[in-house]
Nucleic acid binder design. Sequence first.
DNA 1: TGACAAATTAACTAAATAGTACATTTTAAG
DNA 2: CTTAAAATGTACTATTTAGTTAATTTGTCA
Lengths: 214, 214
Amino acid sequence: MVADNIRRRKWQQNPDAVKNNILETATAIFAKDGFSGARMDDIARQTETSKRMVYYYFTDKKQLYITVLEAAYAKVRAAENELNLEGYPAGEALIRLIGFTFDYHRNHPDFVRLIQIENIHQARHLATSDIISAVNLSAIAALERLIKRGSEAGEFHSNNDALELHWLITSSCVFNITNRASFQQLYGANLFTDDGQDRLKKLIISSIMQTVLA
Amino acid sequence: MVADNIRRRKWQQNPDAVKNNILETATAIFAKDGFSGARMDDIARQTETSKRMVYYYFTDKKQLYITVLEAAYAKVRAAENELNLEGYPAGEALIRLIGFTFDYHRNHPDFVRLIQIENIHQARHLATSDIISAVNLSAIAALERLIKRGSEAGEFHSNNDALELHWLITSSCVFNITNRASFQQLYGANLFTDDGQDRLKKLIISSIMQTVLA
DNA sequence: TGACAAATTAACTAAATAGTACATTTTAAG
DNA sequence: CTTAAAATGTACTATTTAGTTAATTTGTCA
């Protein structure tokens, strides 16, 4: 009604902030509830904007989800670039890499859960994303160079395989997040205090290093 | 139930078979689509009976899901009992345990995915199940005895912690299944052929054994 | 200033989905 | 042979949920 447009609040346009706000909210909710479990209405409600805006910028649920996934991967790449593995002797570099991987996963549980959700859906969406492939392949390439360096210096034995090693490192770091709920439920929280996490980190590092060293 | 190439006017009661059939179907579908993603209609359709029966025996979706989870855990317990770890020297027993864990997860991907789904939902349902706690605590107890035996025999060093070790073993074995889709998508199938899986199994065993041995 | 596009609001719809009502058939006990 | 309870079939409903329509406000630029 024209008569009560006085009562309407005024608002300012701020597309970027709105988009970001939606993305962040959606990330949290997808990570918490999974793709099917997440409700567009929940996302919209927790946003500072409206449901209509979610669709306006992200088309539909699937698109929103894919955008969330890609944004999460983009962050990893940024973090990895700061590692500077080349600046250390191979053995030390590997220790740093394992530690970094452990910490990164620990500090970004939403990211890890998103991947988990993606796996439950047979990684269908991942399949279509170039951004995501790129991030991961560059991680393997870096590890390959590291192994080569370590072998040539006589620090590492000569049979290390980059992909297998990546698998081994990643498995514990991912599991540490993905299965925390069930682990805690069954065995208590001891492993997930700061102290417990330090012990686990050391355990992984020692276990992997002994496998790699000459 | 009855194969009906003839129009079936009569039917036979077979409660147990019907229940089992529903459970097996539901297990597969929950494992494939997650709790929220699974559709009761899908489950009913893939069953040899009707939707009505699903609700008749299992009340609602949640109850059905919990029953599926518990049945999966009950199977693990049965398998574990056949391991007979006490019959071997500690080192050899541990190698067998790791190998068994790897193989069991590999051969029961649905089981692993169910746990994963449960974790996405913060292990809420797991919390309410006594059956499931029991299975897991007994696994830790067995490992504790094994470590004690190994330490006393001088095979293992003296600082091994059962829970940490269980965590380390489980992490790789679980990850091997849960993240297969994304791993394969990104790096190809090499690690998941029979040959690749053998290599990974050996890798885990060697990596863990070096950590545990004196 | 005015007109046109981009951004936003509020209310609505069509489809999907968990769950139910009720009738019918089978089984087993007396 | 009856009868009641257990098991099953058929068809339906209420609710949830992704997605839309249409009107309104704000920003931009000639």
